[in-house]
Structures are given as C-alpha cells and as structure tokens.
Amino acid sequence: MSDESHQEAESGSPTRTAAEWVTLSISIAILVILFGAIGVFYLSGDGENSLIEVTPLTEDVRRERDRFLLPVEIANIGERTASTVNVTVALMVDGEEVESADFSIDFLAGGASERGFAIFTTDPASADVTVGAVSFMEP
C-alpha cells in the first residue's frame, strides 16, 4: 500500500477529484433549492381555500357523429388542493333544462386546471350553457 493510499485509508477522506467536487456541488445545490422552496411555501402559510371555477369553451365545440363535445375548463383558483371535484354542465332552452352532463376530477391542486368534455345530443350553440362545481372534498 502506498503512503498516500495508506493515509487515505486512515483518514477516511480520499483525495477528491474535480469531477467529484462538481457532482457534490450540484447535489448540494439541488438539496438547498428543495429545502429553500419548501421553506418559502411553509412560511407563506396554507393559503386561500379551494375555489373552483368552471368555464365552458363554447367556441371549441366539436361534433362527433350525432354527438356534440363541449370542452369545459375547470380551474382551482384557490391555493389548497381539492379532491373529488364534481362538475355539472346543463343546456337550457327557454329557461328549461334540456340536457345535462356531470363529471368528476380526482385531484385538483391549488392553481391547477384541467379540461373535460361534456357530451350532448343537442348543439350547445343553440342553447344557454350553465356550468358549476357542485361539490369537492378536502384531501
């Protein structure tokens, strides 16, 4: 065993190459960024409650055979995550509901949005579209 390696074995801290310094530095930076970002979120508190906003995209209606697909944007404009978000979409003609569709989203984080499709036999362009989130749960 050489003197150098003998010393390394005794001290337990072998000579570090430039490559090892680079990878160690990147690793430390990743952890510092992670802890820093979580710390910022922790200090900024829980934030506002979940608030679900549903927007029908009536201009993007698609016709597939004898059905009309109405895209609906569901956004959580609050800051807390909502789970089991139930959304209902209805078509109204002369104040009467002629057709409705419901769907559910498993998880919607605060600030996140998802897109769903309501399927109708009536053309949404010929009716008034009413939308709304009817329920959600706190995970």
């Binding site: 337990g12 801290s13 072998p14 990743i30 992670l34």
Partner: peptide, 21 residues
C-alpha cells in the same frame, strides 16, 4: 468506495439528489 462518516454524509447528499433527479 470508501468508508467513514465524512464519505457517508457526502454520499447521502448525492443519493438524495439522485432520487430527486
């Protein structure tokens, strides 16, 4: 390769970073 607490601390930081990436 290598042993000791110093090596272990460095590898811990690197292992968690590997997990993150």
């Amino acid at each position: 390769p290598g042993h000791g607490w110093g090596q272990a601390v460095e590898q811990t930081i690197e292992a968690v970073s590997v997990g993150v990436v």
